[in-house]
Amino acid sequence: MKKSWMSGVAAFIGLFAVFPAQAQDYPAKTLTVVIGYAPGGGVDVPARYFAAKLTKLAGVPVIVENRPGALTNIAAAAVARSAPDGYTLFIASGNATMASNPHLFKKLPFDPVKDFTPVTTLFKIPFFVIVSSNSSVKSVSELTAYLKEKGDTGNYGYAGTFTLAASELYKTMAGLRTVAITYKVPQQSMAALISGQLDFLIQDATNVIRQVQAGRMRALAVTSQQRSSLLPDVPTMQEAGFAGFDMLGWFGLYLPANAPAPVVEKLAGWFNQIVAEEETRKFLANVGSEPFPGSARSVAELQARELERWGRYLKAARVEPQ
């Protein structure tokens, strides 16, 4: 009996002793960064940038594994089933994979809270309310007045969940009857805006920043709570009179559930070191993004708020789960 009790104590102590060893020896082999997007564009570009930077800090190869499909649910499910040893990393959209997808699907192959360990935020993508440069509209207040005058002949375009929800939120708060027009990809809606077929768009900086800088589009407001460093002279929707309007695209780093705390801390430290570099700021600006440093606690708190908000946004946009 005494021997059995002593064995149990030894096993208990050994369980906790393994964590410092894991942190000290970690990583001892190749790290895999999983993303839910196809190679060559979008999130794949910053993911490979971070992977290359992490290789230098961690001293081991870091590869990017693309698992596109089902609005990133395939990638998320694969990571959720992986061993929680710190060798499978997940760069995920906090506002989409972890917040809006649970409201878009009746059944998910993962739980965004229970199946993942938050590590840190990485970068954010601002969205802007834009009109054609040929439009006479110069502000959100002017756009609102213009659309009220047009009634149900006014329109906007969208090619994704975020742009639909943001546009419908503006429409509801402004009391508009504006009609939504669906496009397969953002580029189609942008071409329609420039040609005068649409009254306005809400679109991410990745797609519109160069169009605005080239003078083909005019940015009226940014949808986030704070102004964007990419277009610092553009006011927020809150500054434009829409109190509480706060929608932001952002990406974070996650591990499978129950990952060791020392490993989480080490990864958070490395990624925040990368995010803090001036080279990273310039790289992200070039792809329409901004640095978004954080911690395991901050990303968990943000995700909880986003889950609640996106439930409201999608309900207001009358988007039914499939």
Score class of each variant (00 low, 15 high):
Arg297Met: 08
Glu301Ala: 11
Ala259Val: 11
Glu265Met: 12
Arg281Gly: 12
Pro260His: 11
Arg305Tyr: 14
Arg281Pro: 01
Thr280Tyr: 11
Arg305Met: 10
Leu267Trp: 05
Thr280Trp: 04
Leu307Met: 14
Val264Lys: 06
Arg297Phe: 03
Arg281Asp: 12
Val299Cys: 01
Glu290Phe: 10
Ala268Val: 04
Pro291Ala: 02
Leu307Gln: 15
Leu255Thr: 09
Ile274His: 14
Glu279Leu: 02
Ser289Met: 14
Phe283Asp: 01
Leu302His: 10
Thr280Pro: 07
Trp270Ser: 13
Pro256Arg: 07
Ser298Thr: 12
Ala285Asn: 14
Glu301His: 09
Asn286Trp: 09
Phe292Met: 13
Ala285Trp: 09
Leu267Tyr: 03
Phe283Arg: 13
Phe271Arg: 00
Ala304Thr: 10
Leu302Glu: 13
Ala259Asp: 11
Val299Lys: 01
Arg297Cys: 00
Leu255Val: 13
Glu308Thr: 14
Glu308Pro: 02
Ala259Arg: 05
Tyr313Phe: 15
Leu267Gln: 07
Ala261Lys: 15
Ser295Tyr: 05
Ile274Arg: 13
Asn272Glu: 03
Arg297Ile: 03
Phe271Asp: 01
Glu279Pro: 01
Arg309Pro: 01
Pro262Val: 04
Pro293Lys: 06
Gly294His: 00
Pro293Asn: 06
Phe271Ala: 03
Glu277Val: 04
Glu308Gly: 08
Asn258Trp: 07
Val275Phe: 08
Asn286Gly: 14
Gly294Ile: 02
Ala304Met: 08
Leu307Thr: 08
Ala276Arg: 15
Ser289Val: 04
Pro260Asp: 09
Gln303Met: 08
Glu278Trp: 03
Gly269Glu: 04
Pro262Leu: 09
Gly294Trp: 00
Ala285Lys: 10
Trp310Ile: 02
Ala259Ser: 15
Lys266Glu: 00
Val264Asp: 05
Val275Ser: 07
Lys266Gln: 11
Trp310His: 12
Pro291Glu: 05
Val264Pro: 04
Glu279Thr: 11
Gln303Trp: 01
Phe271Asn: 03
Ala261Glu: 14
Pro291His: 11
Ala296Arg: 14
Glu277Tyr: 10
Pro260Phe: 02
Arg305Pro: 01
Arg309Ser: 12
Phe283Ser: 06
Glu265Asp: 15
Pro293Cys: 04
Pro293Phe: 01
Pro256Gly: 04
Leu255Phe: 13
Asn272Cys: 06
Ala259Ile: 05
Ala257Met: 06
Trp310Lys: 02
Ser295Met: 04
Pro260Val: 01
Leu307Phe: 09
Ile274Ala: 07
Ala296Leu: 02
Thr280Ile: 03
Pro260Cys: 00
Trp270Glu: 10
